[in-house]
Design a protein around this nucleic acid. Sequence first.
DNA 1: TTGTACGCGTTATCAA
DNA 2: TTGATAACGCGTACAA
Lengths: 349, 349
Amino acid sequence: MEREKQYKDVTIKDVARRAGVAISTVSRVLNGLDKVSEKTEKKVRKAVEELGYVQNALAVSMVTGQTKTILMVVPDFTNDFNGSVIQGAEEYLKAHGYTMLIFSTKDFKEMDFENLYRRFSKLADGILVVPGNPDRMDYARWEKPLVLVDSYRPQGDYYTIEIDNERGTFLLTEELIKNGHRKIGLIGGIQDESASGRRVAGYLAAMKQYHIPVDQRLMAPGYHFEDTGSRGMAAFLSLPESSRPTAAVAVNNLTCIGCMKALAERGMRAGREISLAAFDDHLLARYSVPGVTVIERPTIEMGKEGARVLLQILEGEAPKEKRLIMESRLIRRDSVKYLPISGTRDRNR
Amino acid sequence: MEREKQYKDVTIKDVARRAGVAISTVSRVLNGLDKVSEKTEKKVRKAVEELGYVQNALAVSMVTGQTKTILMVVPDFTNDFNGSVIQGAEEYLKAHGYTMLIFSTKDFKEMDFENLYRRFSKLADGILVVPGNPDRMDYARWEKPLVLVDSYRPQGDYYTIEIDNERGTFLLTEELIKNGHRKIGLIGGIQDESASGRRVAGYLAAMKQYHIPVDQRLMAPGYHFEDTGSRGMAAFLSLPESSRPTAAVAVNNLTCIGCMKALAERGMRAGREISLAAFDDHLLARYSVPGVTVIERPTIEMGKEGARVLLQILEGEAPKEKRLIMESRLIRRDSVKYLPISGTRDRNR
DNA sequence: TTGTACGCGTTATCAA
DNA sequence: TTGATAACGCGTACAA
């Protein structure tokens, strides 16, 4: 009863009454579109202030058809790569008056995508997605502007924020080769599977370029999870010494962590018993001793760029180039041991 | 022109026309409230199916006054603690038909809170916040249901999801003491500051209980950032050996990481040159060699519980007990070295 | 420069 | 059991 009154929000109508003008005048002042005499503007602003009026974004969206909201979809929130991308995107959106809805596809069944589109189609103006691994989402059903961060779909004609995945693993593999390694394992990755496939390709390309035959036993394919890494590394370590790899490339942060876990459990360390180089920098790679050689990506910037491109599309100024390739770089640390014995001799450090 | 048509959404009106019934009937079918004859229900469902109709959540919210959305506020997305809390909360909300808006308070000025409340008051039914450090947000302005995750405001009469912070640092400190350490430093924490203050108190309580005088030089207070940790550890290491601590307690994940960074830069490691025990488990503590002894919290569950309590309040079934204290536990790893020399003698491992 | 009135897509109330 | 219609809060032609 009384309570009802209390929670009753002040509307544009209340402001109009208080200011002694029409609601359209209030609207005009608030949106600063048409000309309004200075005097009435002052009256309105005063009323707004006194009443503590706040626009009802819902009602605005109803009539304008815009929600000023974008939906961000990520595989899960506990992966620091996703966290960084979200951070960058959220900052950009916030700074440009947009609000962010968020949705995680963890434990998602493919069927669920349909519901996702239904559920959010009216709630957001556009969608920014970090694909999972595997990357099987059918984006075609989403009819509004869409930007993919860290996906590889050259045929799909989507707006994407990428880095050169193939080059990344190529550099990692090359780094190992240049340090004298020839028995190099690959941990994780699925051939022909989106970005993951590109990373496998980079490994193979480096091996080929340096004329090193690929040993299938040294490839431990799998999706980009920690488990793939720990199992892959365990498998390598159980090989007879003659065929055991002296180094390994992990395809992403989680597989790298899995490798390090497997090593730690055996009292071993990357750069001692086996060398390691991985895609994506992370806490453990950075601060463990020895540190792990990695490909670093501008994760926060990728999120920011994704948001920027999305808003550009919404403003009707879509960039001509659909694929935006960002820079990545190799960070050398001590997980790569120099093997002077056999193989290539030129040290690169 | 044509394009306009394409993007024109199908509304309840279209469904009604197609089914040959009134819109109110369609609404009834959709919401399953009143009785509807089986025949008309079938007609309506068919029309919905054929047209691919989806309710416009905005319009629903306009009239019901509920948005079925909650706002989650976190300090930033790159901290894995926040990531886990978000993960838990998002899963719970999603499963209960709620949508999650998200907002980061990184680089937030206190003044900005007012805008935050204004901006989201009409967009969300409730708010779930993980406070920053410092924890100075004025929640009183937010008039809707609110739940704090990991905040300590016993006087504020808020709904909170907590763990026993004081007990946490007490256990960490005690663990060091029981392993023979007496010169124990504290890294981070601000006295009398919310949860942070409780952690300082836990350290002091343990020292007192074991009759160890507190040396002010061994307290390196500061907010819960990485920098506080690396500087604190650096300061400890530069003390003359006679007064240098043999062990340190870090108040959270970031300060712990800072400590480990400082050690790594000097070629040192926790558990060798100095012992370390910290609040919050994380990647680096778990998998680095040696692993770090920590207090582990049920982070995902904390998010989940926060969401649960919030929805309970929204359903009008607010729990009687405002503070929900969750369990945490000590995980022993190898960063605590046993010092048999002087001091307490009973080993606890 | 300002005001009137319609429409956005729903739910809910009241009649029929 | 169904239908007509008034809200919800706002933006915006159009009229004044």
